[in-house]
Nucleic acid binder design. Structure first.
Lengths: 146, 146
DNA sequence: TCCTTATAGACAAGTTGCTTGTCTATATAG
DNA sequence: CTATATAGACAAGCAACTTGTCTATAAGGA
């Protein structure tokens, strides 16, 4: 019955490791000016049709925080601002080629970080695990707490 | 094969929700001056034999950061400093009754947060899930990245 | 059409949770 | 007993947020 406590601790520990490992690998790939939180921004932006306000909502931070993050990513060359076709106040965000390269590096890093776990469990069990987790996770936006 | 990516996203999303839900419930129980990171400090301190330096190592932060956190928890009445029996430089940390009460509230919050997931999967499958996660998580100290 | 209210984003300042750097007192190893 | 390491205090700095305010544009109702 106290699987519940163990489960919480495990999920938190696992997620901490995952963030750490992905970040380390992405850094080693040459993206030394990116931090974990940026990944969540890239994820939303690459979906398309994202404004700064959309990004703020996705990340669970204020508009101002999102604006600062966007400004930083633009300055570093990962993100571009385009005029919004229907709204003169807003600007649409898009990834530059560097932004897409960073995203690919992060994807690869995630695969590399997960690979040993997949091996440890075996394909079948790993698939079940993913299926279970999928059932548990509602379609809410990912709100990184770190 | 791109279960790996899905898996990463799921673990991160799940962990974010978990932190959020536990924090919300603990706050509602009247502990409005605690933040998620404090839980990890409580966890280490309740194991016993913890100095500020031990805590720093456990949390993955500098000694100074740990000292500030301890100072805050002492000021708020959750933690006490005792003289160390064998080392006049060090002080042993312990939870006060308020600290133990907060820990119990957090445990309860974790169970409540996990309960719907446990129901959704059923007991058997949930146990398997916990077993799988246990196999994946090495005995490293938990280093919260948030 | 105008007028009211809401929204996108910029600008500025303040807060917080960490960091690096330095110091004293105590412990430990040669 | 001397040299080096460690526990923790004190101080300053920094980075990622926050709240508060402003302008320009959009959208809905009389």
């Amino acid at each position: 019955m106290d699987d519940a406590l163990a489960f919480s601790a495990l999920v938190l520990a696992l997620s901490g490791q995952l963030v750490q490992e992905i970040h380390t690998r992405v850094t080693q790939q040459g993206f030394e000016d990116l931090r974990p939180a940026h990944g969540f921004a890239f994820a939303r932006i690459s979906l398309g049709d994202a404004t700064t306000a959309d990004l703020a909502e996705h990340l669970g931070v204020t508009k101002q925080a999102a604006a600062q993050l966007v400004e930083e990513l633009v300055r570093k060359g990962y993100v571009e601002r385009h005029p919004h076709p229907h709204d003169a106040r807003a600007r649409l965000l898009g990834l530059t080629e560097a932004g897409r390269a960073a995203t690919r590096a992060a994807d690869q890093a995630a695969r590399a970080a997960v690979a040993p776990w997949r091996e440890a469990l075996g394909e079948a069990r790993f698939s079940e695990l993913v299926a279970d987790l999928t059932r548990l996770t509602p379609p809410e936006p990912i709100r990184p707490a770190w």
